[in-house]
Amino acid sequence: MGDGRPALVVLVADANPRRGSALSETLRGDSSLRVLTVPAEMALIDAVQLHAPDVVLVDMARADRDALDSIRALSQPAQERPIALFVDEDDAALMETAFDTGICSYNVVETPPRDVKPLLRAAIALYSRFRRTREELSEAQRILAERKLIDQAKRCFMKNEKTSETQAHRWLQRRAMQTSRRIAAVAEEYLAAQKKDDLS
């Protein structure tokens, strides 16, 4: 607020509370911003009417985003500063990245792009980081699940064929190569066949 301008009021509307608070924290590093969040049980439109923000950063997974589209069309007298979807036609790349990432911004209609774009960029960066973490996590979970499956198949094979673990592993490996499939798929198939045998 060094230049004497009033703080820009930013409302963060994230369906993911953890990501929402991370984004708020990031933005609070800028002292020219007053950062607010939408409580979990509050409708987006109610929060907008309550706080009259200059900028709303909206998670596109929110189902209640549709209400924001109505503000101008309904021209409700209660809404003195109508907000609208922020679009920078000269910066289509930024817009497409934002929509790709799942974030968009609604602003008081006259807000200049120079005030909005840094906020949108910060949100995009944070959303991307969260998505990467989530992807890494699910990849790790997948690898773990596969490893479990392979171990189980090996144990089963060792018991059935009275072999060592190395031999069991080789058998799975060979079978995977012969059928051009992944070891985990072979292991899964082997376990399924065993289950069928046990039932019959």
Binding site: M60, A61, L85
Partner: peptide
């Protein structure tokens, strides 16, 4: 899509 806005933006912004 969770919202109509997502449908409209998806059509307008090549998603």
């Amino acid at each position: 899509s969770p919202s109509w806005a997502n449908i409209a933006d998806g059509l307008a912004w090549k998603k």
